[in-house]
Simulated assay, not measured.
Amino acid sequence: MGNICVIGGTRFFGKVLVRELMAHGHRVTVLTRGRTGDPFGDKVDRLTADANDVDQLSAAVAGHEFDAVIHQMCYSPVAALAAVKAFDGRIGRLVMTSTIEVYRDQPGVSGFAAEHELDPSMLGYDMSLPWHDSEFLGNSYAEGKRQAEGALAQAATFPVAFVRLGHVLAEGEFTGRLAFHVDRVLDGGRIAAHRSPGRSSFGHAREIAAFLAWMGGVSLTGPVNASSPDGMSAREFVSVIEEVTGRSAVFDEVDDADDPDLSPFSYAADFGMSVGYEFSPVSGWLPEVVRREVAQRAKWSRTR
């Protein structure tokens, strides 16, 4: 089994990934800033560093070697180049957790994009941008991920894979996108969407974590799409919640993309990914995820 370092393993999806790696017998080292605890006890090793700070990162990994690093916190070329320098000669490969968002607004990219439509080696990066400004970074998520891919593709001295994830969901999903829809259906709140909203791509957290864990142990490099094969529109997404809850949503199709009630999964046209690996259809797993999310609301109500 492998010796694998996970950068960022204490939040929602990172914890799922660490558990998946441990379940398959890997020795796991979790590298974080040390600000958040984790439930793993003495089952993992721990290193502390800011992954954006090349000096901190280099000092933290000095004296360590890993078969693979799974980088969950690579949001900009700053983090990418820090990893290039810190892990030079220390790792067998790096797997960057990327995103469907890299395809957004890119010329020549189809509605369900294939990996070859966006080549990381052709993506530039600009270190003069204010990547250390949290507001700028938050507002530049897609561009930050694209430039991180570009920096790794051009500068890394080790093999790199870029796993571009669809919208990852499970109960308690920390971005609040699932909760947005569930809460509004349960409370009778309004949900807006583009007229005839396009479909997007989704993935179940456990399946995606298992795929990332597998990617840490194989020789595959370059971009890889990871999501369920069937796309789903905002209207279809809300329909699943309606069916699970027995409630009817207040659902409006609108022309205003700035509507404050716009679904975070609403797109004016298809915005998804084609997938070459076998994942479960979203139509098969989403109802259970919604049921678990609804059950969390009921549990919370009973303890008030």
Rank of each mutant, 00 (worst) to 15 (best):
I241C: 03
S219M: 14
R184C: 06
I91Q: 01
A79M: 12
S58K: 12
F40Y: 14
L47H: 06
M96T: 05
R46T: 10
D258F: 11
A79W: 02
I241M: 04
L81C: 07
R104Y: 12
G2E: 09
H71G: 12
E143Y: 03
H26L: 13
D133A: 11
F271D: 01
D105R: 11
A257K: 10
I70F: 03
G172P: 04
K15L: 13
A114F: 09
E173H: 09
R104H: 11
S140Q: 07
H26G: 05
G203V: 02
G9D: 01
C74E: 04
V182W: 00
D50E: 14
R35L: 15
M273S: 00
V61I: 13
T175S: 09
A80Y: 03
A80V: 08
P39K: 14
G216S: 06
G172M: 08
W300S: 15
I241P: 00
S283H: 13
V168P: 00
I91S: 02
R46D: 06
A213W: 01
L220G: 10
Y75P: 01
A161D: 04
A192T: 14
I4F: 05
A59C: 11
F112Y: 09
G138Y: 08
G216T: 03
R35G: 13
D126N: 15
S233A: 10
G89I: 05
V168R: 00
H64I: 09
G108H: 13
R292M: 14
W214P: 06
L220C: 11
P197G: 06
S134W: 15
P229M: 09
G14C: 07
F40R: 06
F237P: 00
N139W: 11
R235M: 07
A151G: 06
F12H: 08
D183W: 08
L165Y: 02
F180C: 07
F279E: 00
L21H: 04
I100D: 01
A60V: 06
A49K: 01
Y103I: 03
D105N: 13
S227Q: 07
D50P: 07
A210K: 03
K299W: 13
A82C: 09
Q56R: 09
A60I: 04
E207S: 06
F112H: 04
G216N: 02
G216D: 02
V54W: 05
A82V: 05
G189T: 08
G188E: 03
G189S: 10
G138E: 08
D126F: 15
Q296L: 14
E117D: 10
K299T: 14
V28T: 05
T97L: 07
G203N: 02
Y125R: 08
D88C: 10
T10D: 07
L17E: 01
A49Q: 03
L165S: 03
R19W: 12
A268F: 08
G150S: 14
A161V: 06
M1I: 13
G231D: 04
Q147F: 08
V254R: 07
A142M: 09
A155N: 06
G89L: 05
A142C: 12
R292W: 11
G246I: 02
G63P: 02
